[in-house]
Design a protein around this nucleic acid. Structure first.
Lengths: 137, 137
DNA sequence: GTAGGAGCTGGAGTGCGCTCCAGGTCAACC
DNA sequence: GGTTGACCTGGAGCGCACTCCAGCTCCTAC
């Protein structure tokens, strides 16, 4: 079973242009071609693309994905450095999640302030409540 | 208490160029100037910059930060739309965290595979274990 | 009074990750 | 056999968020 580029794009959530771009920059191997010279993606091509989208979603820079792709070509021999790349990336992603969480607290605090402002507005003007001024300014 | 641009950069973690850039694009108000025409940032300037870095860290695009900054100028009257922006952004950040988590599972699975490969290598060759081939390929 | 360092301005340049385009080929359908 | 539509190539262009630069001014310290 193979897929034309439009179908591959649909299945991976990437655009047709992005698929060709990933091929140009050697993130993926050139897929097989059909009799008319058109790209024919296999299921395993799509699996790899899907994995790449996970890496991209988690913010891995393309040059590192390329490095990973390059290592993949060397087969089992490169398992150790590939694992190392993924482990390092996992650590980065965990750090990112922690960072987002901590920013979320600030966001929650700010939103809360706006809520309290709205509550006050029904009673006293916000300007009369000192600890709310920062949020209004 | 005011701060020269280098000190403001140090305290906010932004670069001097970024501070001037944020001013140019109207993310921040032009700070006061000292007698020699140099920028003099106040604590409240820094507070705002710090908050902006939280928004940026969480991936808010600059044009939305600008919109928020613009609303801020209108004072308490714009509290409602500002709150709405933050709430929407919070939802985006939560979604992002969930997405990262789900990608982390894939990452964990892959790393686990590499671990099992290494374990097998001590015994049988990896190629002899069908469910590991995908990871080695 | 002069050398050095921080800061100033307007504008150009950069890196990333796509995205778009012109001009052509090919297969299929009417 | 003509038209349509998907796909092809090489290369240019884009949006974002900075980052860097040249050439200048100003204050400070010697």
């Amino acid at each position: 079973m193979t897929y034309a580029i439009a179908e591959a794009a649909h299945r991976t959530g990437l655009s047709i242009d992005t698929l060709r771009y990933y091929e140009r920059i050697e993130l993926i191997d050139p897929p097989a071609r059909d009799s008319g010279g058109r790209r024919a993606y296999t299921d395993s091509d799509l699996d790899w693309l899907t994995f790449l989208t996970r890496l991209r979603t988690t913010g891995m820079p393309i040059r590192l994905m390329r490095e990973y792709a390059r290592l993949r070509h060397q087969g089992p021999a490169s398992a150790v450095p590939r694992k190392r790349i993924l482990e390092r990336h996992r650590a980065d992603v965990l750090a990112r999640v922690a960072e987002l969480r901590s920013c979320l607290e600030v966001l929650d605090y700010k939103i809360d302030n706006y809520e309290r402002m709205a509550a006050c507005e029904a009673g006293a003007p916000a300007a009369a409540v000192p600890e709310l001024r920062e949020a209004t300014a």
